[in-house]
Design a protein around this nucleic acid. Structure first.
Lengths: 129, 129
DNA sequence: ATGAAGGTTCCGGCGACGGGAAGGTCAAGG
DNA sequence: CCTTGACCTTCCCGTCGCCGGAACCTTCAT
């Protein structure tokens, strides 16, 4: 199948599929006589795997690790779990940062009248007054 | 003062200060006779403002808006609050996405033995089995 | 005199793509 | 038969917010 159909079936945009090929995340797909990429069902399966993993927050590099772990049927599940826990830690860190920002911001926003008057604790805080 | 001291006093790296100048977030600072940038206390104050705002999660573009609102003493606090609420909404959206990922990931990780055996629900899920 | 520690500009790279140009290909319709 | 439009191809540039490094200049201490 052509890249458009592979994109539709996998949920990965055609541009992104080419990009994944470029960076070596996926192997080079077969080519038809006209030079078009010719994707197999297996290729689409791999793309779906990637799409799901990306959706769960794994980086492209981690997805590469997961893919090779997936193809290595003798690997230990501990290796996979380690990658997942790394991702969880990264996410937790990020959530913490965001919650801290959110908390400060909403404090400031609550104290700001939000009307026509110019005085504003948000700017005052940013200015360090 | 030179860029290095301005960086130390504001917490904004010298490279970043030059970048902010490039993109027009800050005005062009004065230049000494030797061609070095010559920062004033006001410049450092502005840089600190920027550093704080960035730390709260405002985008550089938003920081630009906040700076011009800060300098416009006749603006309504509502305008500032709007920018802040926009940032809060963006942060909330992001937190929601991350929490959803985190939840799925930790479910999967819990169900994964994480030992020498190869069977792993994480990969099974990604493979869509 | 020399070397270190600043400063300057400019160029390139990161991650993970997306947009769009310039051109080849293919099936359907007038 | 020809055209139209929807695909496909490669290529390069832009995004966001910087950071690293090259090549060069200035200043200061030894």
């Amino acid at each position: 199948m052509n890249i458009g159909e592979a994109a539709a079936r996998s949920g990965v945009p055609a541009k992104t599929i080419r990009y994944y090929e470029d960076i070596g995340l996926i192997g080079r797909p077969a080519r038809a006589e006209n030079g078009y990429r010719d994707f197999s069902g297996t290729d689409v399966h791999t793309l779906r795997f990637i799409a799901r993993a990306r959706g769960l927050g794994f980086s492209v590099r981690e997805v590469g690790e997961l893919l090779s772990l997936y193809h290595d049927h003798s690997r230990a599940s501990a290796a996979v779990k380690a990658v997942a826990e790394q991702a969880i830690n990264r996410i937790d860190t990020k959530i913490g940062e965001l919650q801290s920002m959110r908390s400060t911001l909403s404090d400031l926003a609550e104290r700001c009248h939000g009307d026509q008057r110019p005085d504003c604790p948000i700017l005052d805080d940013l200015a360090g007054s």
